[in-house]
Every structure is written in structure tokens, then in C-alpha cells.
Design a protein around this nucleic acid. Structure first.
Lengths: 115, 115
DNA sequence: TTGACATATTATTATTTTATAATATGATAA
DNA sequence: TTATCATATTATAAAATAATAATATGTCAA
């Protein structure tokens, strides 16, 4: 059960050091809330698309197989959770990832699980 | 907040290498299921503790503030999802992380979000 | 064996999430 | 202005999850 091999094998860029459990205890509620936002296949895809840059709701609608209503609800929810920010430009509402850490996290998830 | 500003701010800052969206489309259900298991503060903590090595149910019970029943249910659930494996030793049932990728992921989460 | 401890299971209720439909608002172009 | 497109909101029903209590099972030591 040692993870030395893992640490050696995976770039230090990805996980430079180990964090104490007490730090985790303090933030586990916040972190688990964030992870819950990623725990739906379409929301995960939306965030994946948004790591490539801001997109309007209709662009996202073209990319994701999801109803207009649910897409808007998901975007609104993730904005309320401060994962996303949005800006209207004319008819279109552009959404973008608001928290850089989320971009990091999604990139790591892709690298670990989407091979 | 203009579109261009968002783009400049978000893209290509961090990620070491990028995975194609089509890979993500294929695995998003599996990945989001996994992330759902991490989307509860006590389950996240349980996994955090288990990254440090196998632990018996009662050891985990001493570490987490959670009822016996719920702890057992959470462990059973994560075992059914193949995140955990278990082995009985006498009176004690030892649980351990079954998927090395999960250890990686939790380490990354700690490094990004538990500072 | 019995009793005590460790863990699992079942049942149940409350809460949250998901999905869908219907309707509303806001912007633009004709 | 009105029609149309883009997006948001509301309502609601179904499904999943969380939390708790009660009970069952399995192991060991006396």
C-alpha cells in the first residue's frame, strides 16, 4: 500500500507534496461540495469544454446532449457556487470558469482518467 | 469582463498536457460516478485516511465523526464501486484503496484545495 | 457454550437531485 | 412595434442520497 512508486512515477508538477490530514478536515466540506458539481456527466463535460475557453449557452448546448432548461440550471448552479462566471454579450451569455484551481483539477482528472 | 480577457486569463496557463474532449466524452459517466463518491465530506475524509494505508472499520470510526451504520454503508458502497477493497483479519475488517488512480487524485485534490 | 465486541444489513424517513414541461424575460432585427 | 432567438425561471414529479434506529451476523475469549 505504499505510494512511493506513484509519487516517483507522476510528475512533481502534478503533486509536489503531501498535505496534512488536518488541513483536509478543515476544507473537506468545501471540497466535497465542489466535487459534487463535477459528479454529473453533463456538468463534467460542460466544465471540460469551458477549460478550453468561454462559451455561450447555445455553444454549450450544441456540444452537450442536454435540454435547454437543464443546461441553464446547471450553469446557474455552478455560477452560484462560484465555479463559473458569466457575461452577456448581446443576445448571448458567455460562461467561463471562475476558479483557476478548477482548471487545474479538471486537467488532472483528464490526465488520470481519460486516457 | 470581455470575452478576450476571459480567454487570455484562462487558457493554456497551467495544464501540463491536454487530453482530447472525445476521450472525456467516453469516460465522463465513469469519472462522474467516481467523483460522486468523493462528494461527501465524510467519504472524502475516509478516502484521505485510507491513502495513508489500510485501516480497520473501527480505526476509521475513531478518526471520522460518523455513526457505525453509516460508516459501514459508505465503505460497502465504495467497495461495490471498486474504489475500495477489504480483507478480514480476525475480528477486524481492513479496508484499503483499490485503485491507485484514486490515490493520485486525492493527493492532487489535497495539494490544490487543502492548503 | 456464552458474552462481548466488530461489522453488516435492513427498514424507514427526510432531504436532495434530476429531469421535464411550461412559462417568462431580455435582446435584436425586420 | 412585433416576431424571433437566447436564456432564465418556476413548478413538479421521479429518483437518488443521507441519516438514523433496530437488528443480524461473525469472531474471539472466557
Amino acid at each position: 500500500m505504499s505510494n512511493e512508486k506513484l509519487v516517483a512515477k507522476n510528475s512533481k508538477a502534478i503533486h509536489p507534496r503531501r498535505v496534512s490530514i488536518s488541513k483536509m478536515e478543515k476544507s473537506c466540506q468545501e471540497v466535497s461540495d465542489l466535487l459534487r458539481s463535477l459528479s454529473h456527466p453533463q456538468r463534467l463535460m460542460i466544465l471540460g469544454y469551458l477549460t478550453q475557453g468561454p462559451k455561450s449557452v447555445s455553444e454549450l448546448g450544441g456540444l452537450c446532449d442536454i435540454s435547454q432548461s437543464q443546461l441553464s440550471q446547471f450553469l446557474g448552479r455552478m455560477k452560484a457556487e462560484n465555479l463559473l462566471k458569466s457575461e452577456r454579450q448581446g443576445k448571448y451569455q458567455y460562461y467561463a470558469i471562475a476558479d483557476q484551481r478548477l482548471i487545474q483539477l479538471i486537467a488532472v482528472i483528464q490526465n488520470i482518467f481519460c486516457r
